[in-house]
Nucleic acid binder design. Structure first.
Length: 414
DNA sequence: TCATATT
């Protein structure tokens, strides 16, 4: 019944004119009213919506602003982005257009299947029938050669829509046997997802996609364009997102837990079948803190998943917000091997105590690891133990650097 | 090289 109140009260929020901004670095304790009051000093703001955890309903440290116009939104961005640090935040406010807003506002179209010799002027002739063109560019390569596609912005959405409907799949340029493709340009988010996917497939060329759990580790699957036509380079996006390749290889991503690795004698024979692995993975401290590995090959038995609570809680920790441990129990780790994800990091460090969370940072655009991350334990003793055992430990090409995480907001000045 | 989060 309380749910019933979730009616859309503000018709203003559906206004085409209104602009949504995303705001980061918002202290979790701030209320929507407080934020509204603050932002109103700089621009007209109709609404503030704090982004909350789906389950706990706790603030996730960011919010959306609804501004009545682009002009007002720009005022808020210019006045606040990177300019103010709210009490309790560690870095300045991040204020930017919410995902997809810019694209929505710009009425940007993608045009594909252009003959390479078509000029801007010719394109302009064709598209100006539908409205005022604000921007038009043919994508070109190094020698100024056309890539056979273009981006185009109209003054209004209606104009863009009219052009899309009229030309997409219907209009053939002179001398071309295939019709043009016209679609709404991808949003920044879609582009990032695509880039990440590409980077992933290059970074892990031997991905064994038969392992179902691997899917969860990869970026969202590629969603085909709504119009079903190709985009830029047809074939660049197969409908099967990950190429299936032959070749057997132990699952790199999940079973790298110390106890799954046998003594070096085994490693030798393992390498040739693991082209993705360029170097030995050794867990110096890890091995000793578990019961001694049996020297029999049985140690390799896949009777794994002592799916211990450490691992599973780490997984849940990394899937939601970051769980932080008590003071002194959180580690910063640098020089993590490139191919390590959250899970591998957790596995590597679980030998020293109860891992609350483990996070490897990745480049937002490419999905590539930045080779640093965090591990949180439930006790400072575990963290110290991990530092002693793992700091300076050669893992991959480099030596791990394991330190206590620097903690900005710990002081309680009374 | 120290938590960037999109209802």
């Amino acid at each position: 019944m309380a749910e019933g109140e979730k009616e859309k009260k503000s018709s203003s929020s559906n206004n085409e004119e209104s602009v949504k901004l995303f705001v980061g670095q918002v202290p979790k304790h701030m209320t929507e009213d407080e934020l509204l009051a603050m932002f109103k000093e700089f621009a007209l703001v109709d609404e503030v919506n704090i982004i909350k955890d789906k389950i706990t309903r706790a603030s996730r440290g960011c919010c959306f602003l609804l501004c009545p116009s682009r002009q007002e939104a720009d005022k808020a961005v210019n006045a606040c982005h990177n300019k103010k640090t709210l009490p309790g935040a560690s870095s300045p406010l991040q204020v930017k257009y919410a995902d997809g807003e810019l694209e929505r506002l710009e009425h940007k179209l993608f045009v594909g299947m252009l003959p390479k010799n078509v000029s801007e002027a010719e394109l302009s002739d064709l598209f100006s029938k539908y409205g005022i063109i604000k921007d038009l560019q043919i994508l070109r390569g190094s020698q100024q050669t056309s890539k056979g596609c273009a981006f185009l912005k109209y003054e209004t959405k209606e104009q863009a829509h009219a052009a899309l409907e009229d030309i997409n799949g219907k209009h053939k340029m002179e001398g071309s046997s295939v019709p043009l493709v016209v679609k709404w340009a991808d949003t920044e988010k879609e582009r990032q997802a695509r880039r990440a996917q590409k980077a992933q497939s290059q970074a892990m060329p031997n991905t064994d996609s038969q392992h179902p759990s691997l899917f969860g580790a990869l970026p969202m699957g590629y969603a085909p364009p709504y119009n079903g036509y190709g985009y830029q380079a047809p074939g660049a996006y197969e409908l099967v997102p990950y190429r299936l390749r032959g070749g057997i290889r132990p699952d790199l991503s999940l079973n790298i837990s110390p106890r799954n690795y046998a003594p070096a004698s085994y490693m030798g024979s393992a390498y040739p079948t693991m082209p993705g692995l360029q170097y030995p993975i050794v867990y110096p401290g890890a091995i000793m803190s578990h019961r001694p590995l049996s020297s029999s090959p049985g140690a390799l038995s896949p009777t794994v998943p002592s799916c211990n609570s450490a691992t599973s809680s780490a997984a849940s920790g990394s899937s939601g917000g970051q769980v932080e441990g008590p003071p002194g129990a959180n580690l910063f780790i640098y020089h993590i091997p490139q191919e390590f994800g959250d899970q591998e990091l957790a596995n590597t460090f679980q030998a020293f105590g109860q891992v609350l969370s483990a996070k490897v940072f990745v480049d937002k655009a490419t999905g590539v690891s930045k080779c640093f991350g965090f591990v949180s334990y439930d006790s400072p003793a575990a963290a110290q133990n991990a530092i002693t055992m793992m700091n300076g430990c050669q893992l991959g090409g480099k030596k791990l650097k394991v330190q206590l995480k620097k903690d900005n907001k710990q002081s309680k000045p009374y």
